[in-house]
Amino acid sequence: MRNLILGAALVTASLFGMTAQAAEPVASDQYTELSNPVPVSVPGKIEVVELFWYGCPHCYSFEPVVNPWVEKLPKDVNFKRVPAMFGGPWDAHGQMFLTLEAMGVEHKVHAAVFEAIQVQRKRLTKPEEMADFLATQGVDKDKFLSTFNSFAIKGQVNQARELAKKYEITGVPSMVVNGKYRFDLGTAKGPQGVLNVADYLIAKERAAK
């Protein structure tokens, strides 16, 4: 399986050591403009997508950085997470995320799932295993399993796979602004750099309206 977790450029030092970035990102260095823009999910709003995987330690480390930023986003910005689907545990974890989102409980257990996989070293790759753990977090086990195996969720899994292809991501976490611009921890030079690039591109898209 392709190693889509960012490599040596994304060691812990780069995750937490680079907090000051240039005021204005340089396109060739810090973000890529997609040749084929992807339609946004909520027309009229500036969309920010984070592609992630519960099994990615860099995604887990990015959580305490991105979450406070998301909470302060203005009303004209729509933030959404999309699970990266590249087979094996990526698909299992992605389907779990989409199921929890469909049930309306993802925001309540997202942190706990990350903690279970990254800190407690639970695999959570089988539906029953997922359901047993989520039951400890107050999620109805039977409802989770029926939703997980539903036709609607399978359709969303296919959509997530297609989005990852259209965004042309090569690592996670990756961000995409308004279906046009892609960047990640490596290109943006750290987690704070990612937020700086995102802020710049949001302002760029707002000014273009």
Rank of each mutant, 00 (worst) to 15 (best):
N3E: 15
I5E: 13
L6K: 03
G7W: 01
A8W: 02
A9H: 10
L10R: 02
V11N: 13
V11P: 00
A13E: 14
S14D: 15
L15N: 03
F16A: 06
F16M: 10
G17I: 04
G17W: 06
M18P: 00
M18W: 04
T19Q: 14
T19P: 00
A22N: 10
A23S: 14
P25L: 08
V26Y: 04
V26E: 14
V26P: 02
V26W: 05
S28W: 04
S28K: 14
Q30V: 01
E33F: 06
E33H: 01
L34G: 02
P37W: 09
V42A: 10
P43V: 02
G44F: 08
K45D: 01
E50L: 06
Y54S: 08
Y54E: 05
H58I: 12
H58K: 05
E63R: 11
E63T: 12
V65G: 03
V65Y: 09
N67L: 06
P68W: 11
W69A: 11
W69Y: 15
L73E: 10
L73Q: 13
V77P: 06
V77C: 07
F79G: 07
K80P: 02
K80R: 15
K80C: 08
K80Y: 03
R81D: 00
V82I: 15
M85D: 09
H93A: 08
H93F: 10
G94R: 09
Q95W: 06
Q95P: 01
G104I: 05
V109W: 02
A111C: 00
A112H: 11
E115M: 06
E115L: 07
E115H: 15
E115P: 00
A116R: 10
R121W: 11
L124D: 07
K126F: 09
P127R: 09
E128Y: 05
A131F: 04
F133R: 07
F133E: 03
F133N: 04
L134A: 02
A135P: 02
G138M: 10
V139H: 05
F144G: 00
L145Q: 05
S146V: 11
T147L: 02
T147C: 05
T147Q: 09
T147R: 04
N149R: 14
F151N: 12
A152Q: 14
I153E: 04
K154I: 01
G155H: 08
Q156A: 12
N158A: 15
Q159E: 14
L163W: 00
A164M: 13
K165D: 12
Y167K: 07
Y167G: 01
E168V: 09
T170M: 03
T170V: 09
V172E: 01
M175L: 15
V176N: 04
V177P: 08
N178I: 00
G179K: 07
D184I: 09
L185T: 08
L185S: 10
K189W: 01
K189V: 11
K189Y: 08
G190Y: 05
N196L: 00
V197A: 02
V197R: 02
A198W: 01
Y200N: 09
L201I: 08
A203M: 04
A203Y: 03
K204Q: 14
K204A: 01
E205N: 10
R206G: 06
K209Q: 13
